[in-house]
């Protein structure tokens, strides 16, 4: 998908190993192929604003970081809500598109192959001439 994945929770590396060997490897052949980081006490989660002091865990925060180390997208979900992997990948593609084409912006629902827009004064009030809401879906 064009990005390195890092998973992180307050669990120890040994717990990650148990989970990987006991369960994840049954869902993904060979287990998940990316590092599972350990954040004891939620030190890193606290810095990222996702550590829940009462529950003592890092909640479901996700951060997309560009090659310069700058945050380009983020999302935080309540513990009971699972993520949308397809949407995460779409955001990676959109951020990469804009990085490669700095004059362009990706409108709602953009996916690779769909039309990007070039923001400029002449476009104000005329987006409807070149982009239709159906393209958002």
């Amino acid at each position: 998908m064009g990005a390195e994945v890092l998973a992180i929770s307050v669990d120890s590396p040994y717990s990650h190993k148990m989970w990987q060997e006991g369960e994840l490897s049954k869902m993904v052949p060979g287990g998940v192929p990316y590092p599972m980081l350990s954040d004891p006490g939620g030190k890193i989660g606290r810095i990222y604003g996702v550590y829940d002091e009462d529950a003592g865990v890092d909640i479901r925060g996700r951060f997309l970081i560009d090659p310069e180390g700058v945050v380009q997208a983020m999302e935080v979900l309540a513990p009971a809500i699972g993520r949308n992997v397809v949407e995460m990948i779409r955001q990676v593609k959109a951020c990469q598109h804009v990085r490669a084409n700095p004059d362009e912006a990706t409108p709602a629902g953009w996916e690779p192959g769909k039309k990007a827009l070039t923001p400029q004064p002449g476009l104000a009030g005329k987006v409807c001439e070149i982009w239709a809401p159906e393209e958002a879906f």
Binding site: S9, D11, D39, P79
Partner: peptide, 16 residues
């Protein structure tokens, strides 16, 4: 990971 895109995701715990 400088020079690469990174997707960093936190999750509440193993076995979730």
């Amino acid at each position: 990971f400088r020079g690469k895109w990174v997707l960093l995701y936190f999750y509440p715990g193993d076995f979730t």
